[in-house]
Design a protein around this nucleic acid. Sequence first.
DNA 1: TGAGTTCACTCACCCGCAAG
DNA 2: CTTGCGGGTGAGTGAACTCA
Length: 468
Amino acid sequence: MWVINVPSRHVDSSDDDAFVPDDKNPKFDDFYWSVMLELRNVKESRGWVIRNPQPRAQLKDARRMINRKCGNHINIPELVTMGIALHDDPEPVATAQEMEAFKICTAPEDIEKYLKAWGTILHHVPFMPALMPNLTISPYGVVLLGAFLDAHARFACSDDLGMLRYDAMLYIEEVRLDGTIIRYQAGCNKMLRGFKDLATACLLTPRRLRDDFDAIAKLFCCNVREGTTRIKSRDYPSFMYPEDGYKKGRSDYGLCRGPFLVRCFRHIFTGKRNATVSACVGLKGGPRPVAELNKMSEVTPENIGYVAVLARFILNDQDAWHVDDNKFNSADFYNSLIHLFSNAEWCASTLKWWNEEVFENNGSDSDDEDDGDNMYMRILAQRATREAAIEEHRCGEEMAQRALEDQIHYAGENSDEDRGDNGTSGKEDAWDHDSGAEDDSDKDMQELDYPEDGEEERDELDDLPEWF
DNA sequence: TGAGTTCACTCACCCGCAAG
DNA sequence: CTTGCGGGTGAGTGAACTCA
């Protein structure tokens, strides 16, 4: 049993850094004082200098960015516990797997995800390493820190969802089907979205099933509502693709480049006013948006995954947020999407496109900028490709085993549709793509390039020596 | 004409409340 | 207790305005 020794709130007023009560934040006053005193204790005992902004603000900022940078399925108290326990551990993954406390999170990729999230906290809270000696011997401090950070998760989630809830509906484009025009009509009533509204249904329909939707949209919606047509977490919806940017034999072509997704991304990261126009156009006052505040200059797969999960929730008719609503598991959706980025070529192509779309960061503004066409870059790219191929091969058997388990799991619900064009729905697709499986669809995929900039890389792959 | 001030706009952040 | 909603607040920014 822990002996919780709550520190006294008395602060010597003679101290230059005496704490000031936060009258505007009474609800978290206990957290505030306790965390501040924890910081103070460390500061006093080790002479650590805490620079502006104040620790409280740094911690809150860090927490708000965890979701945006690492996805919205992080258990914060668990993250804090793990981060502190594994801090400075030379082999954190192995250690975590051996620890009883982390039994529920033993997969290396899960542990690495948490360690990455912890890295985000360390990045935003420079004084955090100085807390480690204290926190490693203070269970109370760990619980407090976790609770404090977790409390602000509600605000972050609520704000981002609230921002998109109505404004995102303005980003839905009209779709013409055989002369009829589909427009968003559900208005402000979220309960009427999803497959009750043709416009949101069009965006939510798995891209591989769009032909069915386009044929008789109302019947398709009816089938989804009645459960005749099932939509799974790894069936990437149409809003993830450009309207005319999908190739049946190459399901990752155009994936993550849907205009609705981009606008939602811009809305959250570069501000509402930049959602439909390029950043820096027509700026008129206002504070800096999230991307600027956090010095984001590049889009990451986690950013895209985070927005994709939010966008999907905004479009559906769910009244409340659930990670798993028995129909759609957002964590599975997110994780499968992030896993697709493990393909180095597709990842580079997609992120380059995103960086140009969001930050106009195409590296061509200056003559000094490297356009990537040099031996150094080629060697790096070739090495990365080889390492990725080796890694994917190593993972192949493990993934195949998982795919088999999934197949068994979905045995009762997977119908004939999955045996056909199911390019976007299962992890076996992504993994087969990466590992070079020998079915026809993958051969097609290897023969096609990604939008815009895949040509050169493909030629280089063709030129690889036999030992590769 | 240029410096200083005011205003409008935008956004991040926070919290009370209601519903489940 | 959790979650979403709506409103309030404070702050940063650029444009418009005022005045010496």
